[in-house]
């Protein structure tokens, strides 16, 4: 319980630091530009599918920036004064992750409010918005967790390369296929296909979450998608905290 309270206090501390540093202006400006380009009132009214598909992509892009910026704050010598206290390594790392998520979710909330006020979406009520928003935000949490695992203060360079290689293999379906695979010996093709299947499986919740956000169709086993997103997020965060708790800490950024 104390650990949770300390972590939430640290989230508050990081958000104040983030806001006072002016970094938050980047997210706000990006939100305004995104709204102006993609969501302002045009001649035709936006559909819910259009709203969720564009906002999902924007939220993921924002996750890249905000999570990286927040975790960058953790790689500064100032961190030593925090890490020496009862906050501990887990609270320290999760604090930055959660602070970034708060920023992303707040910007998404502002965009949604702006849509409701200035360009209401036809056929989208609060229930529909919640159903589309849940997998969308879980996807930002999932990507944020992956970026936390890949942060320099968590994984050393070699580890990051390994994880990125696995992600690359998982995504390789669209890049290596057809003619390229046909030219390779049978066993190599089979091995690549197996590796691709294995490593792309963990990415399924992200892809299906995106589809669920757009469709908002929770029939069948689709209700399991947010759960899969949640568990994958928790798994990645647990891995990140575990590694961070065991590695040597040499904070270097300034």
């Amino acid at each position: 319980m104390n650990m949770l309270i300390r972590t939430l206090r640290f989230v508050g501390f990081t958000l104040v630091e983030y806001a006072r540093s002016g970094r938050i202006l980047v997210e706000l400006l990006a939100g305004v530009i995104f709204f102006y380009i993609f969501l302002r009132r045009w001649t035709t009214l936006p559909s819910p599918e259009y709203f969720f598909s564009t906002t999902s992509l924007f939220a993921l892009a924002l996750t890249f920036y905000s999570t990286s910026a927040a975790l960058g704050l953790g790689d500064r010598p100032q961190g030593y004064l925090l890490l020496v206290r009862r906050l501990g390594r887990g609270g320290y790392l999760l604090g930055f992750y959660l602070a970034a998520q708060v920023v992303i979710w707040a910007i998404y909330g502002l965009i949604s409010i702006a849509m409701a006020l200035y360009n209401p979406i036809q056929g989208l009520d609060v229930r529909g918005w919640l159903l589309g928003t849940l997998p969308l935000l879980l996807n930002t949490a999932l990507l944020g967790a992956l970026l936390t695992l890949l942060a320099p203060i968590v994984l050393p360079a070699t580890g990051r390369l390994v994880v990125l290689a696995l992600v690359a293999i998982a995504f390789s379906g669209g890049l290596i296929g057809g003619q390229t695979l046909a030219g390779l010996p049978g066993p190599v093709t089979a091995a690549i296909n197996i590796a691709r299947t294995i490593f792309s499986t963990p990415l399924l919740p992200a892809f299906t979450g995106f589809a669920l956000s757009v469709s908002r169709d929770y029939s069948g086993i689709a209700f399991a998608i947010p759960l899969a997103q949640l568990f994958l997020t928790l798994g990645l965060l647990t891995m990140a905290v575990y590694i961070f708790a065991r590695r040597e800490i040499i904070l270097s950024g300034g």
Binding site: E17, P77, Q78, L81, V84, R86, G88
Partner: peptide, 14 residues
């Protein structure tokens, strides 16, 4: 942790 006070060589603050 918490029983130790630390004064680093190069003090950096928020």
């Amino acid at each position: 942790r918490g029983r130790i006070g630390y004064l680093p060589e190069r003090l950096r603050y928020h």
